[in-house]
């Protein structure tokens, strides 16, 4: 499995959307202040690699009790170069005592929130 993760596929897989994994658990998102805190932390750090369009951190809401992608973080950059920089730089960092795992995410799935 590790070999699979490492097999650098052609750069055709790079997109404008960065997927950040293993950073949060659903319970971290229940408190509104903490949720905004996390969003700010992620935005501020990602902006260091280039302009970002927006970001999405799925969580349970009153209207949607079971959204997909809870526990994942998605950041859309203006261009794939910035996204690629962030992907390399943030991998292996620590976020609230958890190791950050990064991967590209398809833009069309991001648009329709098919997390």
């Amino acid at each position: 499995m590790a070999a699979l993760a490492n097999s650098t596929a052609s750069d055709s897989s790079s997109t404008c959307v960065l997927q950040l994994l293993n950073m949060i658990v659903p319970d971290d998102l229940n408190d509104d202040d903490e949720y905004e805190d996390i969003k700010d932390d992620v935005r501020e750090e990602c902006e260091k690699f280039g302009p970002i369009v927006d970001l999405k951190i799925p969580r349970q809401t009153r209207t949607n009790q079971n959204p997909s992608g809870v526990g994942k973080i998605f950041v859309r950059f203006e261009n794939p170069e910035s996204c690629s920089k962030a992907l390399k730089a943030l991998a292996g960092r620590k976020f609230a005592d958890r190791t950050v795992v990064t991967t590209f995410f398809p833009e069309e799935n991001y648009e329709v929130e098919a997390f």
């Binding site: 699979l4 993760a5 490492n6 097999s7 596929a9 897989s13 190791t99 795992v101 990064t102 991967t103």
Partner: peptide, 9 residues
């Protein structure tokens, strides 16, 4: 373990 998944998983 790799922390950047660049393959096609």
């Amino acid at each position: 373990l790799p922390t950047s998944i660049s393959g096609s998983m």
